[in-house]
Write a protein that binds this DNA or RNA. Structure first.
Length: 445
RNA sequence: GGCCCUAUCGUCUAACGGUUAGGACAUUGCCUUCUCAAGGCAGUAAUCCGGGUUCGAUUCCCGGUAGGGUCACCA
């Protein structure tokens, strides 16, 4: 039997990280079984759906690299849904019911499923056997009219007509499952799919994360815009609720397909830990070549810097060390941040040039004068951090590293926190470095 | 509240019924060029509680407790 899975979002918002993980699990399971995965947009509630969300969702999957074998909108199947509703009615499994209108928009006639009031056991791959008594569900509504099916009916009919073999979805659907099984059995065309309800992704305080309560961090688009690598996001997500059974953590999509095991998915919810995501992202960023890295960061580099590609090139090494996502680039170059010295030395006081452990203006001034002499011996086109370091290092060791290096670094950067002085000098270049040292010396007079 | 699910370091998790309860993130300390970052090393830190079953429970069973999900003419 060929495996067919599906991811079935409703277009009422952008793609949620929990949705992305559900889709990923469906994808991995389908791929490792040589099966197919369908993207079904569940847009039966015309009033709440928005076209922009459909493109938002499909764009997010394009970015993630999760491809579908088939994509369709559920509303395209309304005629088929109608056929099944009619069939259920004519076979006495459903009926047209007269209703009292409780709220605006209510119909005075809806279609209800005739509940056989029996026990239904969901045989779940992850949760095991879960027994429900369906009596309390009553004769639930399956359509507002022949042409307006609602969730449970459309969902089941589409699963049946698409030949879905495995329903892998979030745990919030577990309690919907008995209803759907009842409908599935009433239609009685194909045997039940296997169900797998995956645990929820939780917030810090252990509740289901939602856009409403937790904001933009729940949407995949946010991570795309913040400059995260898709492989890092996917890697982070796949390990929320599943692991390969050993200490391996960095997994490519191919490795995930090979190693994923739906039966080993965790039963309990997992807290979404942004710091760990950042760590994954850093791991993946560090694997990038300089060329790829530059490609990824182009949209985050401030204009004044992207206009000076040589300067940017000299700073690249340091930038790569400092950031956890490409979006961080904008932050480290903000005024007052650690890399802003490249653009703008900024104001500082003479006292800040003095090393805390030995604050003495004359000593600092003399060291800076000596550093200047040493730097002057280096040819302009040979002014690399290694060369600068080898020129200054012996002097610093001989005269107290802190005494020499603190004023040196501070003169170059004007900041308490910054890259080391050798790298800073290299980034700034010989001329600018000397200018800044002169300025520092004059401040100390 | 009814129904349902869940329970190992702060977080993600590993552990045929027998382990000094392992790893990762975070955190702390140290080292690595003065600060920062990165890196290296080391450390702190967990089986929710109570009963069973068993020679022996993190592991199996029951009960509490706590958290979560769900109860639409939404999906």
């Amino acid at each position: 039997m060929k495996v067919i899975t599906r991811f079935a979002p409703s277009p009422t918002g952008f793609l949620h990280v929990g949705g992305a993980r559900s889709a990923l699990f469906n994808y991995l399971f389908a791929k490792q079984n040589g099966g197919q995965i369908i993207l079904r947009i569940e847009d039966t509630d015309i009033e709440r759906n928005k076209e922009e969300y459909i493109t938002g969702i499909t764009d997010a999957f394009k970015w993630l690299g999760i491809g579908f074998d088939l994509t369709y909108k559920q509303s395209d199947n309304f005629p088929i849904h109608r056929k099944y509703i009619e069939k259920l009615i004519s076979s006495g499994k459903a009926y047209i019911s007269k209703e009292e209108i409780k709220k605006e928009g209510d119909r005075n006639e809806v279609i209800r499923f005739k509940n056989p009031n029996k026990d239904v056991t969901v045989d779940d791959i992850i949760k095991g056997q879960v027994k429900f008594n369906t009596t309390e569900l009553g004769d639930f509504v399956i359509a507002k009219s022949l042409d307006e099916p609602i969730f449970h009916l459309s969902n089941v009919v589409d699963d049946i007509t698409s030949g879905i073999t495995h329903v892998i979805r979030g745990e919030e659907h577990l309690s919907n499952t008995p209803r759907q099984i009842l409908i599935w059995e009433a239609i009685n065309e194909v045997s039940l799919p296997r169900y797998a309800h995956i645990p929820l992704i939780l917030s810090e305080n252990r509740e289901k994360i939602s856009k409403r309560k937790h904001g933009e961090i729940v949407s995949v688009e946010y991570y795309k815009e913040q400059g995260y690598l898709r492989d890092a996001l996917l890697n982070f997500l796949v390990l929320l609720g599943w692991n390969p059974g050993n200490d391996e953590e960095i997994l490519s999509i191919d490795q995930m397909i090979e190693k994923f095991n739906i039966e080993k998915v965790q039963k309990a919810g997992a807290v979404f830990n942004r710091e760990k995501l950042d760590w994954f992202n850093k791991q993946y960023m560090s694997k990038l070549s300089n060329e790829d890295f530059i490609d990824h960061c182009s949209k985050f580099v401030p204009k004044w810097l992207s206009n000076k590609p040589e300067l940017f090139g000299r700073a690249l090494h340091i930038i790569r060390e400092k950031i956890h996502s490409f979006g961080d680039i904008a932050k480290i170059f903000e005024k007052g941040s650690e890399m802003n010295f490249i653009q703008d030395l900024g104001e500082y006081t003479a006292d800040s040039l003095l090393w805390k452990k030995n604050p003495n203006k004359e000593i600092a001034s003399n060291h800076l004068k000596e550093i200047k002499k040493l730097l002057d011996t280096i040819a302009k086109d040979n002014f690399t951090s290694e060369v600068v370091k080898s020129a200054i290092w012996p002097y610093a060791e001989g005269n107290g590293k802190g005494d020499v290096l603190w004023p040196f670094r501070f003169a170059l950067t004007g900041q308490e926190k910054s890259p080391d002085p050798f790298s800073s000098a290299y980034i700034l270049g010989k001329d600018e470095s000397l200018v800044r040292i002169d300025l520092a010396i004059s401040k100390l007079m």
